[in-house]
């Protein structure tokens, strides 16, 4: 019996956003990444094609991370002490783009300075041709102190700068606008707050095609349902035509998955939990793939093995038989 699959016709489209700029467009990237453009729920190929598949970012830190799982440190080895080499390793591991995270301190344990930040970002830009997301430590004063000079020093690269949050977005948006960069806005798992921040940022005159939103999520077993639901609702609203929700979404399953006990702790846990390293990457992979199905356009990962596995999942989802 032939079964007719109902086809939804959505009036809205997710914005198309290009991260990074090649020399021709005023940057130095060897490749750029374009995300967004969806006109249907994820992977409903029979409704509309997915113009840009979800992409994978690898997260690295400006100074050796103090709170990362030993599994991750073992996987990366000594490159974690050298941002330039780490960036190269990320590219080799198959990332589409790199997320560079600043903490409150530099490699020597001193408070981060604008010089350190600019130097690190430049070193990473030289070491890799991938587009770059640069995030401050999330404290308004420090973020503004280091991101403004970074934005100035990398004019035209179309970096993604963050975090823009409700309490601190104006300075970052202003410096992104003045230097041709993009911004990442983050709100704590809430459709309306996400929408409001997007309104505020575009109110300043930043075009929508230069904003990516992070609606925040949880790890598998640690609130992923909540995050999934918010992302799904944002995407539904976007497809229904609400311009202020039509932004591509970036989420960080790597951060979320690697702070769960299952990924972080290797000793004193039941034997049935199995191999620690395998467990961690399973956790990260499953979290990431679930969020991709919720509509994520960029997933940020931490373990190089997860990149391969999430990539396989994306490829499979992208080639699903269309009805």
């Amino acid at each position: 019996m032939p079964i007719e699959i109902p086809v939804d016709k959505w009036p809205g489209t997710v914005n198309t956003v290009t991260l990074g700029a090649t020399a021709a467009d005023g940057g130095t990237r060897s490749k750029v990444v374009t995300i967004g453009g969806e006109r249907s729920l994820p992977f409903m190929h029979f409704e509309n094609e997915t113009p840009h598949p979800p992409v994978i970012a690898l997260e690295m830190t400006a100074a050796r991370p103090g709170d990362w799982s030993q599994v991750l440190l073992d996987a990366w080895g000594d490159v974690v002490d050298d941002p330039a080499r780490w960036a190269g390793a990320c590219e080799e591991a198959g990332a589409d783009l790199i997320l560079l995270m600043f903490g409150l301190n530099d490699a020597d344990g001193n408070p981060v300075t604008p010089d350190f930040a600019v130097g690190t970002v430049k070193a990473v830009l030289q070491a890799t041709g991938l587009p770059l997301v640069v995030l401050g430590p999330g404290q308004a004063e420090v973020d503004n102190e280091i991101l403004v000079p970074v934005a100035d020093a990398t004019k035209g690269e179309r970096l993604v700068l963050g975090l823009c949050e409700d309490a601190n977005y104006r300075t970052i948006v202003a410096s992104a606008m003045a230097n041709g960069h993009l911004v990442l806005g983050r709100t704590p798992m809430d459709v309306n707050l996400a929408k409001q921040l997007n309104i505020l940022m575009t109110d300043m005159g930043l075009p929508l095609d230069r904003i990516v939103m992070d609606p925040t999520t949880g790890a598998l077993g640690y609130g992923i349902e909540y995050g999934y639901s918010v992302m799904e609702r944002l995407r539904l609203a976007a497809l229904q035509g609400d311009a202020m929700t039509q932004l591509p979404m970036l989420v960080n399953p790597g951060y979320e998955a690697w702070r769960t006990k299952e990924s972080k702790v290797g000793e004193g846990v039941p034997d049935t939990w199995g191999d620690w390293a395998a467990r961690g990457t399973h956790w990260e992979t499953l979290t990431a793939v679930s969020l991709i199905e919720a509509g994520a356009d960029v997933v940020v990962l931490r373990h190089p093995d997860s990149v391969t596995r999430v990539r396989e999942a994306i490829d499979e989802l992208m080639t699903l038989e269309t009805a």
């Binding site: 503004n144 403004v148 100035d152 104006r170 300075t171 948006v173 202003a174 410096s175 606008m177 003045a178 300043m204």
Partner: peptide, 12 residues
Amino acid sequence: LRSWGIQLVDGR
């Protein structure tokens, strides 16, 4: 201009 401009835009 950039230094002051940002402060004018972000409200400082």
